[in-house]
Design a protein around this nucleic acid. Structure first.
Lengths: 200, 200
DNA sequence: AATACGGTATGACGATTGTCATGCGCCGGT
DNA sequence: ACCGGCGCATGACAATCGTCATACCGTATT
């Protein structure tokens, strides 16, 4: 019997895949969490064999959860289940030692199989992603990421400077460097590129 | 027996809610589509009692599907199931005469109930949205929307002008008007506001 | 027919953004 | 101890963006 904790903030999907997995005789869902923080508590109390988690969730993200799990319960395996085919996400997940990384695009009938394989210690990666994994590394510095995140929300350089205690010119400079590194033409493009790579 | 066609591009969710609904004795899933176009074909061949559809899908969107359905098979009811709590989406859905509008945030066990109620002719709206429905109307003109969509992708005014056969100054003007109408400070904010309202 | 109005279109002008040269401090290699 | 490289920080200058005044054209109202 494979004991599983699920973490997924879309309640409908949480419930639906819970029901789906429970149909299998060798799988038992012992906890359902709507956030990363909830998931951590459930993992501590239930000590499951396997955790299935989304990435983008309120509070703790699935990637943070994976990193925490590798420290706290290295024996527990993890399967990431996300909408996003972002190379940076996959890289970070693999570096945290996850056993699997699937997209919500995957047909539902493949899920139980993936669960069993990860439980056995195999590594299961969404085929669309298997190649792109070790492409580009994030070339941005922490400052550049900070500034780019704010710029992407439509905040002006002056306001970003105030928020981060930098001169306006400095903000412009970081943005300019980020734009250059990402081969973009302006802040908006740079933001989209970095976000789509999973670097923000 | 309520005969249903499902349209949802996330295969995992498509399969999972399909399985969930099939557990109920009075509900039968007679078709599963991964796109709006596929859904339309299934509706034509199956003539279901009810269609459950996502909004953002490849090809035909759920809203276009709803508008088509109201013309083509006015007797068939429709339930929208989406991630997005965007007032403009809800408004357009209601104007197309849909029977329900739920979020994927909804707990899974409420779904079958909503299906039965919509089938009976009741109207089911996600409570988070019931209020916001008749708030703001889209104040943008078609030109303003076009320009804003492109600006949101990080394309420069000059390039937008070329794309739409407008002078650069004209593009700036439309953007300026959109920014003003939406009470934004710049193109990025304007884009986000319009998108989040479901106006793009 | 005259008028008002809203959408389309443009260019001038000031404001904001993007680029570049420059300097500082911290580390790792020699 | 010295250098080279890198991240951090800034201001001057150029390029792009945002605002405004203006104008044309349909169409709805009077």
């Amino acid at each position: 019997m494979i004991r599983i904790v699920l973490a997924e903030d879309q309640k409908l999907l949480l419930g639906a895949i819970g029901a789906l997995l429970d149909l299998d005789d060798d799988i038992e869902v012992v906890g359902r969490a709507g956030s990363g923080d909830e998931a951590r508590e459930l993992i501590e109390s239930q000590s499951p064999d396997l955790v299935i988690s989304d990435i983008e969730m309120p509070g703790m993200t699935g990637l943070e959860l994976a990193e925490w799990l590798a420290q706290a319960q290295p024996g527990t395996r993890m399967l990431i289940l996300t909408t996003f085919a972002r190379p940076g996400y996959l890289r970070r997940a693999l570096e945290a030692g996850v056993g699997g990384y699937l997209l919500k695009e995957t047909p539902a009938d493949k899920l139980a199989d993936a669960v069993r394989r990860v439980h056995r210690g195999e590594r299961v990666i969404a085929p669309e992603l298997a190649l792109t994994a070790f492409d580009a590394r994030d070339p941005l510095t922490e400052r550049e990421r900070q500034v780019l995140r704010l710029a992407g929300e439509g905040i002006s350089n002056a306001a970003i400077g105030r928020r981060l205690h930098l001169a306006e010119g400095t903000v412009r400079n970081y943005l300019s460097e980020a734009i250059g590194k990402l081969n973009a033409d302006n802040r908006i493009e740079a933001f989209r590129i970095a976000r789509d790579q999973g670097w923000l």
